[in-house]
Simulated scan of single mutants.
Amino acid sequence: MVSRLISRVRLSRFKKIVALAILFCLAVLAALGLTQFWQRPVTEAPGSAVAAETIISTEPIQPIPLSIELDQGKVQLGDLLFHDPRLSADNTVSCATCHALDKGGTDRKALSIGMAGGNTGINSPTVFNAGFMHRFNWDGSAESLEEQAKGPITSVGEMGGMSWQDVVRKVGEESEYREGFAESYNDGITPENIRDALAVFQRSLYTPNAPFDQYLRGQKDAISDEAKAGYDRFKSYGCVSCHQGMLVGGNMFQTLGIFGDYFADRGTPITEKDLGRYNVTNNELDKHVFKVPTLRNITLTSPYFHDGNPKTLDEAIKLMGQYQLGVNIPQEDVDLIMQFLQSLTGEI
């Protein structure tokens, strides 16, 4: 995609102008309603089915399905595992420590804290609607929820770095797990089945029926006039060129700092070592490339960005304008865009 191409090269001033022109054209297409460019069907979450409807959106954003089908036995097992601190080496940290469901699926810390106070070096992205994503982690290093589950459990800085043999042993000590895995999996408790149960549970954490989704489905009074104006601004400024699709993001990668050195200007707490660790390609040009985050439920997940640097949504919008679009968005438009973003909060 255009954004990915831009992120892989050192942009000269000329290339920056070209990039801005392309982003502007994409925004104009959306704003003018040239729908054939944007049309795409709602896609299903992995391992699930969209319930009784096939919606073709005429907007660059599509609604989240109202229901999906999942194995409820595996969902319940995954729920137990997700909240169980025994998956950490010292029995103090669970998946929910960094992805609390009552905090928008995050921990609301700038940089998440792992076992024994270890600094993970990164901001925890929300776990809500993860089942609709095609890549995971800020660097996109995991291709599935099952693969992503390997990382935190075996990471020394996050959950202590247990071996999967030890994880299976600890899980197998509990009768509730032994019975549950026997009912849901033919081969009982295995590393693959533990990761599968965690993945199925996370797929159940979708947030449908946001006011904006109701609006997309034809209920024109589901959002305020201010939110509608904010959506128009969101498209006209070009935000929608990276934040589109069902998750309003989450489906591409982008360089942070197309129109300025974000890292030098902001004094980001992410170190060069951390940037190297989260650079999955090991290419110097990709050091500042991150997965574009979803904007679903964005009002619940502060602070923002991979480094938790902007503490408020107001600040995050202005920084995106400055560093990604090369514009200073006036406060009036920022306020309208926030009204639109608030309409993206779904039913938890």
Rank of each mutant, 00 (worst) to 15 (best):
R8D: 11
S12R: 05
K15S: 14
A19W: 09
A21Q: 12
L26D: 09
V28M: 05
V28N: 01
V28C: 04
L32N: 12
G33P: 10
Q36K: 11
Q36I: 11
R40Y: 13
A52F: 06
A52S: 14
E53R: 03
T54E: 14
I55L: 03
P60L: 00
I61N: 10
L66S: 13
E69G: 03
V75F: 04
L77A: 07
L81A: 14
F82S: 10
H83C: 05
P85Y: 00
S88M: 03
N91V: 06
C95K: 02
T106I: 05
R108W: 07
R108P: 02
A110M: 13
G118E: 12
N123Q: 14
S124F: 08
H134F: 11
H134M: 13
R135P: 01
N137S: 02
D139T: 15
L145K: 11
E147I: 10
Q148M: 13
A149K: 14
S155L: 11
S155I: 05
V156G: 02
G157R: 06
G157W: 02
S163G: 14
V168Q: 08
E174M: 10
E179G: 10
E179T: 14
A182N: 09
Y185L: 01
G188L: 03
T190Y: 04
P191W: 07
N193E: 07
D196H: 14
D196L: 07
R203W: 05
P211R: 13
D213T: 08
K220M: 09
E226D: 11
E226C: 00
A229R: 13
G230V: 00
K235M: 01
K235D: 00
G238P: 00
C242T: 03
L247W: 03
L247Q: 07
G249W: 07
D261G: 04
R266E: 10
E272G: 10
N279F: 15
V280I: 10
V280T: 12
N282R: 01
E284Q: 15
H288R: 15
V292G: 07
T294V: 10
N297E: 13
T299R: 05
T299E: 08
T301G: 01
P303K: 07
L313G: 03
E315N: 15
E315I: 14
K318F: 12
L319N: 06
Q324C: 15
Q324S: 15
V334P: 02
I348L: 10
